[in-house]
Every structure is written in structure tokens, then in C-alpha cells.
């Protein structure tokens, strides 16, 4: 409960820090290549965004609006509010992250289990090779590579854009494979450790079939390290997708991570920071609670 209460405090600290840090950076949202038509035009523009007020006042106004759930107008995209931009793009990033999460778990866990059961065999080496590649090849190499082979040469999938399930295949794989590799390694190590433990021997001694031992007594325990990793992993999937979104031109939040800083779109930047701080908090809390539920020893 204390952790839940801490979330707003943390958000406030993040908001305050980023508000003042951003203002300390040289250049502002209204510095443009073309000078404004006149000083009056420039003044009118600044007044519209309350830029003419002292900083503490802007800060107060911003906090007040945030409390009411209003993240303010974007300073770059003149016809969109930050809420509007996040509302349009967050679902896309969540969908992509969610599907990649599916790939990570769906591919990683069976691969890890297989590698542990066939330890030292060809399956183990194959899985080890795959996971090594998965961990080592960066997303910005894997993405274009998949596009080149599966998109441009074989023409199985579209090379970019978003809208149908075909569009989702390549970006989901690009984003998911790295995490699948990580999950496979965690799972394999967890399995090997559990297979050695005494309760597995007890289970076998009870005369359970090997399949039942593995499914009932080994996998659930071996999942614990994977589950504790899911919180940070989900966070990585949801925030780390900007390279993939850029390569595949996916209308998610990724584009704003870097561009809103480069264009000094302070309100958008702040909105992103606040939204993702909140998301990280919630995800960590979620994976902790899940862990507690799976393994009652945790936290007691």
C-alpha cells in the first residue's frame, strides 16, 4: 500500500525535475528557421502558450492542469493536445509491446524448457546459438534484415506501416526475439537448478510420470525468475520500441521520445516522461504482486 501512495509523490518529483531541466537547455520551441513576421506576431504566439509569464507561474499552471488530467497543448503539433497525441499513439505502442511480449514468452519459455531437458544435446546447443544471436544482434540491424529478406526479397510481409496483422509480423518479431532469447536463458537456468532440487526427487519418488513432474513441479518454480523479470521486460518492450517504430513507420509513441526533445516540445516531452514513469511504477508493482502470488515465500 505504501508503494501505491508513493507513486504520486514520485510523479511530482519527476515532473518538477524535468520541467526545470528542460527549460535550462538552450533553444526553445519557438526558435525557428524562419523568423516570425513581426515582434507582435511572436509575442502573440508566446502569449498563447503563456510563455510570457514568469517560470514559477508556468510551473504552477502546468501542475494544476496535470492534476486535472490535462497535459497541455503540444508546442510543436499545433492542432493536437498532448492528451490527444498520447491517446492516439499509446495504444499502438501497447499493442506492439504486448504482441512482442507474447513472442518473448511464447518462444522463450518452450525454448528454455527444451534446452534444459536436453541439456548438452543438440537442442541445447541450437537453443543456445539462437539465444546468443537474439541477444547480440541489435534491433536496428535485425529489423532492416527482416525487412530485406522477408519483405523485399520474399515479399511475404509488408515492409512497413501499421493497420493489418500482416503489418504487425515483422516489427513484433524484431522487438520480441531479443526478449525471447533473454527469457529462454532465464528459463533454462531456472529449470536446471530446480531439476537438481530435492522436491523434484520427492515427486519422482512418489511415482509421478516425468511429464507430470516437469509440468507440475519444475516449470512453475523455474518460472519465478522469469516472472520477476516480466515487469522490467514489459517496461523495456513498451518504452524501447522507438527504434522498431521508426524502422517500420509505426504510429506509436516512439517518434516522440527523441523528436519532442529535439523540437523542444516541452509539454509533449513532459507528458511522455510522466506517462512512462507511471507505467513503470504500475508494471513493477504488478510483477511484484504476481511474484508474491506465485511464490508465497516472497515478501513474507
Amino acid at each position: 500500500m505504501a508503494r501505491v501512495a508513493l507513486i504520486p509523490v514520485l510523479l511530482w518529483v519527476v515532473a518538477t525535475l524535468s520541467f526545470f531541466l528542460l527549460r535550462a537547455v538552450p533553444g526553445g520551441p519557438f526558435d525557428r528557421e524562419r523568423a516570425p513576421a513581426s515582434r507582435e506576431v511572436e509575442a502573440a504566439l508566446k502569449a498563447r502558450y503563456h510563455w510570457d509569464e514568469p517560470l514559477w507561474r508556468q510551473y504552477g499552471r502546468y501542475l494544476g492542469n496535470v492534476m486535472h488530467g490535462d497535459l497541455g497543448p503540444s508546442l510543436k503539433y499545433r492542432n493536437h493536445s498532448v492528451n490527444d497525441l498520447l491517446g492516439q499513439t499509446v495504444p499502438v505502442s501497447l499493442a506492439l509491446g504486448g504482441m512482442a511480449f507474447g513472442v518473448a514468452i511464447g518462444l522463450g519459455i518452450p525454448l528454455g524448457v527444451l534446452a534444459a531437458l536436453k541439456r548438452g544435446g543438440w537442442a541445447d546447443y541450437a537453443a543456445a546459438g539462437l539465444t546468443l544471436v537474439g541477444v547480440c544482434v541489435p534491433v536496428f540491424v535485425l529489423g532492416p534484415l527482416l525487412v530485406l529478406v522477408l519483405g523485399l526479397w520474399l515479399e511475404w510481409f509488408p515492409v512497413a506501416l501499421w493497420g493489418s496483422w500482416q503489418n504487425a509480423v515483422l516489427p513484433t518479431l524484431t522487438l520480441g526475439l531479443y526478449f525471447a532469447a533473454r527469457v529462454a536463458r532465464w528459463m533454462r537456468e531456472g529449470m536446471i537448478e530446480v531439476l537438481r532440487s530435492s522436491h523434484v526427487q520427492t515427486a519422482r519418488a512418489k511415482g509421478l510420470s516425468e511429464t507430470a513432474v516437469i509440468l507440475r513441479h519444475v516449470v512453475p518454480v523455474a518460472l519465478v525468475p522469469v516472472i520477476s523479470y516480466t515487469g522490467p521486460m514489459l517496461a523495456d518492450l513498451l518504452t524501447g520500441s522507438f527504434v522498431v517504430e521508426n524502422v517500420f513507420q509505426i504510429p506509436g509513441t516512439g517518434a516522440f521520445f527523441i523528436n519532442s526533445f529535439f523540437s523542444r516540445d516541452y509539454t509533449m516531452m513532459m507528458g511522455m516522461v510522466l506517462f512512462y514513469s507511471l507505467l513503470l511504477q504500475v508494471l513493477n508493482l504488478f510483477s511484484d504482486l504476481l511474484l508474491r502470488w506465485v511464490d508465497p515465500r516472497v515478501g513474507s
Binding site: 492516439q88 495504444p91 511480449f101 514468452i105 493497420g163 516449470v219 518460472l223
Partner: peptide
Amino acid sequence: NALVRKTGVFCCLHWWAGLFESL
């Protein structure tokens, strides 16, 4: 947009359901 969103959510749900089942 909404469908894609749902797809993601459902996929998550599906996998988590699988996990819970085994646990």
C-alpha cells in the same frame, strides 16, 4: 486502431492465462 489494440491485449491475456493455468 482499436482492433490492433485489442489484439495486443488479447495476446497478453492469452499468454498470462496459459501461465496461470500451469501454476
